[in-house]
């Protein structure tokens, strides 16, 4: 398959007690966006979330993997303190600095049936790399 045709996507992968989140895309930024959608999908069906509220997020880290960890942990924090779920994301990364907007809405327990809270992103299975076909992979395990 020609990687130029890969549309960005996300998936979950197995971990004994918890769950792995993975984003795959042709750019690092889109891969980070997809990993974040995978995170939402741990809690609820992202299709059930509306993008009515925008939250700005900034983080900085010495390498891509630390940046992914910070990005996911910042989203976990914003969801917790603002009582939100996020549907989609716009990420820009420049020289180790991430600037993003997360779009979502307030948690509605009837509508979203949130299954579980995420405690934090972990170093376990934390990898950010570019495959030979050009696609970026950004993944880690989240503790729930």
């Amino acid at each position: 398959m020609n990687s130029k045709t890969i549309a960005p996507y996300w998936e979950h992968f197995e971990h004994g007690a918890d769950i792995g989140i993975r984003g795959i895309a042709l750019t690092l930024e889109q891969a980070f966006e997809q990993t974040a959608v995978a995170m939402t999908a741990v809690i609820t069906d992202p299709d059930q979330v509306l993008a009515t509220k925008a939250v700005s997020i900034h983080c900085e880290a010495p390498d891509h993997e630390m940046l992914l960890l910070d990005w996911i942990n910042e989203l976990v924090y914003q969801m917790a303190v603002q009582g939100l779920l996020f549907k989609r994301y716009q990420v820009a990364i420049h020289e180790g600095k991430l600037s993003a907007t997360a779009f979502g809405e307030a948690v509605d327990r009837q509508k979203h049936q949130p299954a579980v809270e995420i405690k934090g992103a972990t170093f376990t299975e934390l990898h950010v790399y570019q495959q030979p076909d050009g696609a970026w992979i950004a993944q880690c395990i989240v503790d729930v």
Binding site: M66, N73, V76, F123
Partner: peptide
């Protein structure tokens, strides 16, 4: 507790 764990895990790793 989750936030303390998250923050110190990173600080200790670095």
């Amino acid at each position: 507790g989750h936030q303390i764990g998250t923050e110190f895990l990173k600080d200790m790793a670095m």
